[in-house]
C-alpha cells in the first residue's frame, strides 16, 4: 500500500467515522440518562434519510431547506417514540425497556418496508457533494471532504447546546443523578424528551449525509451503521459524548483499514466491528473515556 492510497483510505475512514460519530452520540446520550440502549436509534437514522428524500423528490424543496425540514421532522419522530413507547416502561424492569426498544426498532423498519417498499430509492445529493478534488495525485470526492466538515460543525453546535445552554445543563444533571434532579424541581420527562430530539436530529443529519455518500436508500439501511455507531459509543465509553466522537472515528478507520489491508477480509468487515464490540464489552466495558460504576451491596 503506497502513501497516496493510505491517504485516500484515511480520508475515507474519517468521513465514515464522522457519520458513526453523529449516530453514536444519540446512543450515548440516551444511555447516559436512562441506562438503556435505544435499539431504534439506527432506524431514526433511516427516517432522516427518507424524509430528506421525500422533501426533495416529492415536494421539490431546495436542498438546504429539505435537509433542515428532515432533521426537524426526525427530531419530532424521536420525541414521539420516547413519549409513546419508552416513557410508559420507564419504571418497569430494565429488560422491559430493552425489549420495547427491540420492538420499536423492528416496528419502524417494517413500517418502512410496508410504506415505501424494500426496493432501494436513488437519493439525489447536491452537486457539491459529487465534485471531485485533486490533492496532489490523490482524487477525493466532495462527500469525503464535506462530510467530516459538516459533522464537525454539527458536533460544535451540539456541544454548545449540551455544555452552554440551560437545557444542556439539565441534560447533564439528569445523566448524573436522575432522582436528585427530579427533586430539584426539573421536569425530567421534558429533559429526556429534548435529549431524544437532539440525538434524533444528529442521527437524521447522519442519515442524510450517509445517503449522499451511498445514494441508494432502503428501510434497512440503518441496521449496520447503527451497530457500528453503537460499537463506537461503547469503544469511546458509553455515556460520554466526547467518547462517542472518538469512538466513531476509531470505528470508521478500523473498518476502512480492515478492507484496505486485505481485500480478502472484506466479507468480514461487519464481523470485525462486532468483534471489537464484544471484546470491549468483555475487557473494558467502560470504554476509553467511560467511568466505572460500582455496584452496591
Amino acid at each position: 500500500m503506497n502513501a497516496s492510497v493510505l491517504f485516500q483510505q484515511l480520508i475515507n475512514g474519517m468521513s465514515l467515522g464522522s457519520l458513526y460519530a453523529l449516530l453514536a452520540i444519540g446512543y450515548t446520550m440516551v444511555y447516559g440518562i436512562l441506562r438503556f440502549i435505544n435499539f431504534a436509534h439506527s432506524d431514526i437514522f433511516m427516517v432522516g434519510a427518507y424524509s430528506a428524500f421525500f422533501f426533495i423528490a416529492v415536494f421539490r424543496l431546495p436542498w438546504p431547506l429539505a435537509a433542515a425540514f428532515a432533521v426537524a421532522l426526525t427530531a419530532l419522530v424521536g420525541m414521539t417514540i420516547d413519549r409513546a413507547a419508552y416513557r410508559p416502561v420507564r419504571d418497569a424492569p430494565r429488560i422491559s425497556a430493552l425489549i420495547t426498544a427491540v420492538g420499536v426498532s423492528s416496528f419502524i423498519e417494517n413500517l418502512g418496508l410496508v410504506t415505501v417498499g424494500a426496493r432501494p430509492k436513488a437519493f439525489e445529493s447536491p452537486g457539491f457533494m459529487s465534485q471531485v478534488f485533486h490533492i496532489g495525485s490523490v482524487a477525493v470526492t466532495g462527500v469525503a471532504v464535506w462530510v467530516p466538515i459538516i459533522t464537525v460543525l454539527l458536533l460544535a453546535i451540539m456541544m454548545y447546546i449540551v455544555y452552554r445552554t440551560k437545557i444542556g445543563m439539565a441534560m447533564r444533571a439528569v445523566s448524573t443523578d436522575i432522582e436528585a434532579t427530579r427533586l430539584m424541581g426539573v421536569d425530567v420527562d421534558r429533559v429526556i424528551s429534548y435529549t431524544f430530539a437532539l440525538g434524533s436530529a444528529l442521527a437524521a443529519a447522519g442519515g442524510i449525509l450517509w445517503a449522499c455518500k451511498y445514494p441508494k436508500i432502503t428501510p434497512l439501511m440503518g441496521v449496520y451503521p447503527g451497530w457500528k455507531a453503537f460499537t463506537a459509543a461503547v469503544v469511546g465509553g458509553i455515556g460520554s459524548i466526547p467518547g462517542a466522537m472518538i469512538g466513531g472515528f476509531i470505528i470508521g478507520l478500523v473498518e476502512v483499514l480492515t478492507v484496505a489491508i486485505s481485500p480478502n477480509l472484506s466479507g468480514y468487515r461487519d464481523g470485525v466491528i462486532f468483534l471489537v464490540l464484544v471484546v470491549f464489552l468483555l475487557v473494558r466495558p467502560t470504554g476509553i473515556l467511560g467511568e466505572t460504576l460500582k455496584e452496591k451491596v
Binding site: A85, A92, S96, I99, T100, V104, S106, L113, V114
Partner: peptide, 19 residues
Amino acid sequence: GIAGMRMLVFSLLLVLLMI
C-alpha cells in the same frame, strides 16, 4: 401483497405487550 406487514403487526404487538 404487502411485504413486512406480518412483522409490523408482531413488532407492534411486542411493544404493546411491554407497555
